[in-house]
Design a binder for these strands. Structure first.
Lengths: 302, 302
DNA sequence: CGGGGCGCTGCAATAACTGCAGCAGGGCAT
DNA sequence: ATGCCCTGCTGCAGTTATTGCAGCGCCCCG
């Protein structure tokens, strides 16, 4: 789409932070790029960028304008995918920002399932904490976001919410594995590991401990759920995760998980959402529909 | 905005129905326009238009694309007005589609009030029946719509709803003018005039007559509310209108209006709305805010 | 069965854009 | 302070894209 090149150039300059740097990534000379930007600013009547000694930065007007540009560019993608869709081809790209719990089991199986039907659709999966995931939607670097216990929800349009009770994860031989449901105070008798503070599971546990007056002193803290899971088995300690991240690993025999009694720790909520007010490309919309139905079937809708 | 000329050209072709006709309105040759369209179709990979012997028509892909184009163009207007707004200038244009009742009193006074604050904002007021008003929102020929008893509300985002009880309008000397509220059966004793079928007032009255088993045989039918109002005074017959269209004409002495008892005819509802999912230009948004507050103060919110 | 509308295509003139080289200016390490 | 590097910006020349003028073939309508 050549008539969009000007605004794509501006987008590149914003991303690169300088005209010359952007010109490199765009494979044109800085002269041409500079002139186009000057022309755009001329037409707009106000400067888009502030000129700094080491590059350029968006002006106030530019902030408004770049928003419009990103909207246009990704809406154009949607249009192209819709047009491709009505000529029978199912192509496209789906970009997802999600938290760790989705990576080990849920997303791989869901993407595989979708690509079995539509092999020409490509995927991008980006690990983002709950705040960065929303930011990814805003700057159009992701079509969908899946986050656990999101902080703020401005610009976020929820497609489905499912309950995720916190589970305690342990080696199969652990004493607590004999129970079907575990009380929080029972965990206090054993060594535990916890995710670091910014994560939703930790957040729920912190509140629960404060309310119940129980202290769990973690012998291990980590920001990797995968490490916590594997270490729990290796050293026979407890850790805490949500069921969507525990696919069928718990059925292999090495590792088991048991829900914590909901009187102690309330269920967290997992959100699937998109940018508010945006019409998703066909592929992303269909994949979101698949996720919605799978989530609704596998978990309790909140 | 020169980089938008291509898509503006396409929009013009859609509106004109043929390339040559559009070229005239755009003050360019049909050659240039034709070539740009061919180039766009080349880039898009599919034809935007179907070629007919007497012009062109949108293809299926074109339908999708023109939607995107109109969005882009009017979103650009919004961006420009927002940018103008932050540099302190209050410019812009507000286009309104509304039904007849708004024309005599309400909109003139509201627009005058607004323009007193912002003299650089221009207005377009377009008379549209309740279905055409919504269509005007969809094709971006109007920013706001004010309609009485709308038929369908897809794509319509309601900003405010106010009750509009049907009033009977008559000359000051009419016997019914002595009452503060009028029952429907009382009207049956006098000659009446009615709006024609497609209008909301007529619709409400038709239902009321059927329910109450009363027949009002109109000696005059007209699609002009202004004519009905003036004729009611001239020939001393009754007619029916909603209060928002009766500003202060009724206080000049020539003409009076009295509400019909709500047991007989339920209140109609007047809707102020915009296109769903659209961010309005600053001027339109501010004017809508003014309308909302005025309506909320003068009438009963529904 | 012409006439007038339509979309489309060579060809030449024009307008727009790009790239090269070089300018001034500000931060940074010597 | 002083080169050095990177920044945005500008004349000039070459190149590319766009436009307008005729003119072609087409189909509907009278």
């Amino acid at each position: 789409m050549r008539y969009l090149s000007s605004i794509r150039y501006i987008d590149a300059v914003v991303k690169a932070g300088s005209i010359r740097a952007a010109a490199d990534t765009l494979a044109i000379t800085s002269t041409a790029l500079n002139r186009r930007i000057l022309a755009m600013e001329e037409e707009l009547g106000v400067p888009i960028f502030e000129r700094l000694p080491h590059g350029v930065r968006l002006s106030a007007a530019g902030e408004i304008y770049i928003h419009h540009i990103r909207n246009q560019l990704s809406d154009m993608e949607r249009v192209k995918s819709q047009i491709a869709d009505l000529s029978g081809v199912r192509r496209g790209h789906v970009s997802i920002a999600c938290s760790q719990a989705l990576l080990p089991y849920f997303l791989p199986s869901q993407i595989a399932l979708y690509r079995k039907e539509h092999p020409n659709v490509t995927f991008g999966v980006h690990l983002r904490d709950r705040e960065a995931a929303e930011q990814a939607l805003v700057d159009h670097s992701a079509d969908l976001a899946i986050v656990f216990e999101p902080v703020r929800l401005a610009d976020f349009m929820t497609l489905i919410r499912v309950r995720q009770p916190v589970h305690v994860v342990m080696a199969a031989g652990h004493p607590l594995a004999a129970k079907t449901s575990v009380r929080l105070f029972e965990c206090a008798s054993y060594p535990v590991s916890l995710p670091t503070a910014p994560y939703g599971v930790r957040h729920l546990l912190d509140i629960a401990m404060r309310v119940a007056g129980i202290r769990l002193d973690p012998v291990i803290q980590s920001d990797s759920f995968e490490f916590l899971r594997n270490h729990a088995v290796a050293e026979d300690i407890l850790t805490f995760q949500i069921p969507i991240g525990l696919g069928d690993e718990t059925s292999t025999g090495q590792m088991v998980s048991r829900p914590i009694d909901s009187r102690d720790v309330p269920s967290g909520i997992l959100y699937l959402g998109q940018l508010k007010g945006r019409t998703l490309p066909v592929a992303a919309a269909r994949f979101a529909a698949q996720l919605t139905s799978t989530l609704a079937n596998q978990f309790e809708v909140s």
